[in-house]
């Protein structure tokens, strides 16, 4: 295990070392201590290494991640794993706004709660939140699954495209063009997969499913009040 102390060296040095790792590196497990809310920790990773961050992090932790498994043992600021391509990012505490914003693949797990705009413009990522999420989540969500084990705030799925939202608890007001859809056995199976990958224990049969009514896919003047 390679240990890196952010009290002793700057973010630049950490990210530089992580980026310079060769594909066949033996440094496949990293422990980062004293993050102290710093931004852009472990961004732009490209290898299947494991990075454990012990403490709270600021904005964009594990941003644009590919292949790597990043665990944050603490709380997260904005844009956790934004535009993630693949790999897994997990936070043991809460995450702030824009979790996995525009994420295109991989898995993001929040063991606590997530703030507003969770999964905004998501493009294929799977997001599993053990707690609740804030308002305007999955705004313009294009692809992927947003799984919320507890409650979702107002304007869920506003202007959603083809992403799927599963909610275990209560929902507030739904966003424009977002509707509740039938939860069939097929969807229960579809939900079981990300829950198992995330290691979150929840009964998929208790969830409700939300998605696009597809009424805003082409402009129609009679839907103008939805725009």
């Amino acid at each position: 295990m390679t240990e890196f102390d952010l009290a002793e060296a700057p973010i630049r040095e950490l990210n530089s070392r992580l980026h310079k790792l060769p594909p066949d590196t033996n440094e496949r497990a990293w422990r980062i201590v004293n993050p102290r809310g710093a931004h852009s920790i472990a961004v732009g990773l490209t290898l299947p290494i494991e990075v454990r961050i012990e403490g709270h992090v600021g904005y964009y932790c594990a941003g644009m991640n590919k292949e790597a498994t990043v665990v944050i043992d603490g709380q997260c600021g904005w844009g956790l794993a934004e535009n993630i391509m693949s790999g897994t990012v997990r936070v043991t505490g809460n995450a702030s706004q824009g979790v996995a914003a525009t994420g295109r693949g991989g898995l993001v797990v929040v063991e606590g709660d997530a703030g507003a705009r969770c999964g905004v413009s998501m493009k294929g990522v799977d997001i599993v939140v053990a707690g609740s999420i804030g308002h305007m989540s999955a705004f313009m969500a294009q692809r992927g699954r947003l799984v919320v084990c507890c409650d979702a705030g107002d304007d869920l799925g506003d202007s959603i495209y083809e992403a799927v939202i599963y909610v275990g608890g209560k929902t507030g007001r739904l966003g424009a063009d977002c509707i509740e859809k039938e939860m069939t056995a097929e969807h229960v199976a579809d939900l079981r997969a990300p829950l198992e990958r995330a290691g979150i224990e929840a009964d998929p049969t208790k969830f409700r499913r939300f998605g696009s009514a597809r009424k805003l896919y082409h402009f129609n003047v009679d839907h103008a009040d939805s725009y």
Partner: peptide, 16 residues
């Protein structure tokens, strides 16, 4: 990452 043939809106502000 969107379906073929639908109007594609680009957001007016950044998501994150």
């Amino acid at each position: 990452d969107l379906p073929v043939g639908i109007d594609q809106r680009s957001a007016c502000r950044h998501p994150d």
